[in-house]
Each structure stands twice: as C-alpha cells, then as structure tokens.
Design a protein around this nucleic acid. Structure first.
Lengths: 247, 247
DNA sequence: TATCGAATTTAGATTCATCTAAAAATAAAA
DNA sequence: TTTTATTTTTAGATGAATCTAAATTCGATA
C-alpha cells in the first residue's frame, strides 16, 4: 500500500498548519526476488550498447514466457523502475539503474567471498551468488566489502560497484581482436558458464595469465597462443571471443 | 510434479526386463522459503518438551492467521514432513526433523559468521540470518562451517547441528533457578531479542561472563549478582529466566 | 501500399500463500 | 450433562507470478 503511494526514495511531509515542520523520510524501496531478477536482466541486456531491450530477450534470459515479461514490465513501469513503451521496448530509469547496481554489487561481493574465503572454484560460484545477491541488508554488503578488503573486481574480472554505484572501468580488449605478436594478461571473461570456466582451468588459463598471440588460423579463425614456459595451444574463435586481455 | 510422486529421499528404479540394473537416485527435496519457516517454527515449539504443537501457537510465531497455518499443515503433511491430525496438533516426522536441523544449522553458522568475521553485534544478526538460512546449498554450509573452524555453539550459546544433525548438549541451568552463593559462567541466552541482548551488553554480561548469586529478593524474585572486580548489580526475574549458566 | 511473419500484448486460467467470515470440533464451566 | 467459550477448520476471495492461446501491432518485403 505504502509502496503504491510513495514511489520516490525521499519524501517530504509538510505540516498542514504551521508549514514549518518538515518531516523528511528516506524510504528504502524493496523489491521482490522476482522483480530484482528482471531489473538485473534488463541492466545486463542494456549494457552492451543496446538502448531498448525487447521482451523476448528478457524472456529468454529468465527462462520464462514473453507474456509474463509483459506483465512484469507494466508493474515495474508503475513503480518507476523502468521506462516502458508498449511494443517499443524497455530501459531502466535512473532509479532502476541504482537498484540494478546494488544487486550486481552484492552478487560480485559474494562471488569474491566464495572464491577467496570459502575456496569455491570460479565455475561454482554463480548459482549460489544468484541467491545470496537478493539479501538486501546494506550493512551486510558493506561489512562484507570491508572484510574482503574492498575488492575492485570479482573472480571473473568483472568490476564491483561501490555502495554509490560507481565501478572501475578496466581497459581491455577481446583476445579474438588482437593481432599476431600482441601480448597481454587475462583480466576477465565474457562468459561465466561453468563449462567454459572449467575448460579454462584445464588449459591453465586464469585471471593474470600472460598470453601472446603466435598465429591466427584464417580457416576457422582459431588462435595459436603462447603461455608461460613456452607452452603453446590452439583455441577456437568461440573461446577467444570470451577472454578479455589487458589493453 | 516429481515432488508429488517421489516423497522419500532415496528412490530405487529397477529395470523392468533384466531386473538386475538398479538405478538409485538420491533426491534432494527442496522446500519453499515459507515451508521452511513453518518447519523451523514447529521444531522450535516442540523442542520444549511439547509433543503436539497447536495451530494458534504457530500462527502467533509466524505472525499469520490460524487458517493459513491449517492450509500449510495439510500441505506439509502430504509431503510427509509433519504428522498432522485435525484438531489434535502437529509434530515433525523424522524427515521433517532432519530438514529443521539443517535450517537451524545454516542459521547458526551464519550468525557465527556475522559476529566473528563481519563484526556484527549479537543483537544484529538474527534478522539477516533469517534470510541467509534459506540458501540451501550444502556445499556452502559445509565450507562455511570449515571456514569458521567447525564451531559448536553460535554467538547466543546455542548448539550448531552437524551436517548429519547432531549437536552438542551443553550442561546448563537457568540463572533464575540457582541458589545463593552458587556461581558459574554464562553459556547462553534463552531470548535473542535485540532489546534483551542490548541490555546485557550494557550491563557487561556476555558469553563467558562469570556470575555469582549474592542475594535473592523474595519480594519480586529479583537477583543480586556479583560479576568480576566486585561489580554488583540487581536483575529482575524476567532477565534471570533468560540467562543460562554452566551446570 | 498491401500483406506476411515475427514480436508483443491481452484475456483468461492456474498455483502458492495468504486473508476474512462462518461453521465445526474440542475443552471448560455451570 | 448441557451450555459456553475457545480453538481449529472450511469455504470462498485476493494478490503475485506464472502459463496458454488468441488477438494485436510492427516492420520488412513484394
């Protein structure tokens, strides 16, 4: 009920008689587990330069039906979390973006915790972090951040937003876009699926690994790369498109 | 759907033709956030020697209505989590008890983590742990347990069940039941409400504090107790009934 | 510009957890 | 033992999030 009336984050209530007593309440809007997943998905889909995210894309990511997405978009629109125009697409409002960044912050802090402190492998953390990210206590997130030593990047190389939503931009390029004899260090991955990360582990590639392009095979765009100790291997374009190297 | 058919935890599927191939599947039943809260509540209400927990008691703890409780009891009964007889009351099945102990395990491990690692006060942890306890990953609970050094008791002195559901029984008595000149050490509290714990903090009482009964005031059953360095104070019976002392 | 096909939205139904109000069962008191 | 009070359950409704199937809109092509 209150949620319906008070959509902003800060509300001023002025005394009717004196006009001098102003009560400023900061309202912490909370969103359901489901709403948070939609917000996060819209954020991620608009991150790649996309302006208006379309319904089907959201449905695919969330493994749900387009009709369900439409319903939720109307709801989030009423809450001023998204700009939604029927048939046109959806984008986050500044408010929605703030919410998204907080969710992402919590997700990445938990992933860091799981890997650094609980010795999870980097391919095991996503699923659990998907649950942990919804615990909304700000104190918890901030204390965790402090406990971890204010990390700037998570185990996959993704930047961790600060409490106010800022994040470090890492200068990086895709391994697939480098030229022969270029070299650099792995600073992130573009895909965090367990199968991909397990493959990298097997190949001895992780954050911080030095890589040099030895050759490009034009036939299928696969790459011959050099690692430490003259170790050489060939990786497919599929793989090279999902590894970020320091610029 | 699968949930409806397969209620146990282990299922054997025998090949129809050869009869020799037996597929044993261990099914991890999962319960909704809401179901888990009911299970936990029933466990806690039956812990105090009560055999059959009644509907109203559950409704009161969960701040819901008796009618809602009845609905959920029928549901949990169908899942073999509780023994439920209309109008008579409810108790956990062995299966339900296992589930309850896992939830309590996770709750207490998280409380320990919050206090020991994230520097929460013991009155701040309950609410957050109520959310964290529902994250069901067994790997997470076990790694957390390991990370904390396999603690046997949480910050309120309550025992932490092991993965198999066993817990240390602490020999203890209520401060209210001790005689004049008896002495001992605080090993737990019977009430974890923030207001109570903040009061104890203020009085300088925490786990491990040595207490000696100096006098009992018969008028209102309040106690005069002695702490370290000849510090003396008077506490009400209400308070003394909520502090456990080593036996 | 008329039409086709894909994307999107509406309409109506379902499931879960909840509620209120009324009925039924149990327990306590007269 | 009857009556009364309390507890518990049923019946019917609601809101959130979802679904299917049908209708609508958009954009691209002929």
């Amino acid at each position: 009920m209150l949620n319906e009336w008070l959509r902003g984050e800060v509300v001023n209530i002025r005394c009717l008689f004196t006009q001098s007593l102003i009560l400023t309440i900061k309202i912490k809007m909370s969103h359901s587990y489901t709403e948070e997943n939609y917000i996060k998905t819209i954020y991620k889909l608009s991150a790649n330069g996309v302006q208006d995210v379309n319904t089907n894309a959201i449905a695919e990511v969330l493994e749900t039906k387009a009709a369900s997405v439409t319903d939720m978009l109307r709801k989030l629109s009423a809450k001023d979390i998204v700009n939604y125009v029927k048939y046109k697409g959806v984008s986050l409002t500044p408010q929605g973006e703030r919410v998204a960044l907080q969710i992402i912050r919590r997700h990445r802090l938990w992933e860091t915790f799981l890997v650094e402190k609980l010795k999870f492998n980097w391919d095991e953390v996503h699923e659990v972090a998907e649950e942990l990210e919804h615990i909304s206590s700000t104190l918890l997130a901030n204390r965790l951040d402090e406990f971890l030593g204010y990390p700037k990047f998570d185990p996959h190389g993704d930047p961790i937003p600060s409490e106010s939503g800022e994040m470090k931009h890492k200068k990086q390029r895709l391994l697939a876009e480098m030229a022969i004899d270029d070299a650099g260090v792995v600073v992130g991955v573009n895909d965090s699926q367990p199968l991909f990360l397990q493959y990298l582990d097997k190949m001895g590639i992780s954050l911080g690994t030095s890589i040099k392009i030895i050759d490009k095979i034009p036939y299928d765009n696969s790459l011959e790369i050099g690692l430490a100790q003259d170790r050489c291997l060939v990786i497919s374009q599929e793989v090279s498109k999902n590894i970020f190297i320091s610029a």
